[in-house]
Simulated assay, not measured.
Amino acid sequence: MAEEPSVFGPTLGILAHVRGENNNLLTEPFLDVCRSMLPVVDKFGSSMALVKSDVGGNIGRLDAKYATDTTSYYLLYDIVRKEVADKTAKNSNSCTNGLLWLTRAMDFLVELFRNLLVHPDWTMSQASNEAYAGTLKKWHGWMASAAFTVAMKLVPDRKKFYELLGGGNLNTDIETFVTTFAPILQENHNFLKSVGMDDLKAS
């Protein structure tokens, strides 16, 4: 009997279709990739409840905007371009802000899984803390930072966590996820930087 694929299976399937003509990022598949990470976040248990609600909220915000005009917002960055033109991009409830924080949350997850791959001797707490320090921490105020520090102490044991992620070629799947998704997230940052929107901090 074939082994069950890992929890990354759906994500890797969608990642293959995230670009359209001229290599542009497509709104719906990008949001679907992020959405497909929610079951992965679930495997962390209650420790990642903050990340899950943040990611879910930002996907919902972008989804709602996309649904208003699927033709105009077919390409991910066109949502941001419209808000920049309307001078609403800096609003805390803007889709631009949503994309920025969604990208940062995904940065954190990519970095966490990269740490698990590169450092087989690290505990989950160590991998999580290092990922947080390298991604989200500098953008968080002290309250969010304190909440995250507590959450990182609650992550499951590494061996148990790996069992929850499913079978198949788990390390290969993680590596494919990290190496495929990281450049897309970097592209988001480069674009947001080009319109002056990559350095917003949490209040």
Rank of each mutant, 00 (worst) to 15 (best):
E4L: 11
P5C: 09
S6R: 08
V7N: 03
V7T: 09
V7H: 04
I14L: 08
A16Q: 15
G20D: 11
N24I: 03
E28G: 01
P29K: 09
D32K: 13
C34D: 03
R35G: 13
S36L: 10
M37L: 14
P39R: 11
V40Y: 00
D42V: 06
G45W: 01
G45K: 03
M48T: 07
L50I: 11
S53K: 01
I59P: 02
L62Q: 03
A64C: 05
A67M: 10
S72H: 08
Y77I: 10
D78G: 02
E83H: 08
E83K: 06
A85Q: 14
T88M: 12
A89L: 07
N91F: 11
N91S: 12
S92V: 13
S92L: 09
N97K: 13
L99F: 04
A105P: 03
M106C: 10
D107W: 05
D107R: 09
F108M: 13
L112V: 04
F113T: 05
L117H: 07
P120T: 08
D121S: 12
S125D: 13
S128D: 06
N129A: 06
G134A: 14
G134N: 15
L136G: 00
K137N: 03
W139T: 02
G141D: 14
M143N: 06
A144N: 11
A146G: 08
F148V: 01
A151P: 04
D157F: 09
E163Y: 00
G167K: 14
G168R: 05
L170F: 13
L170C: 05
L170K: 07
N171D: 12
N171S: 05
F177K: 03
I184P: 00
F191M: 07
S194Y: 00
V195L: 11
M197G: 04
D199G: 03
D199S: 13
K201H: 08
A202F: 04
S203R: 08
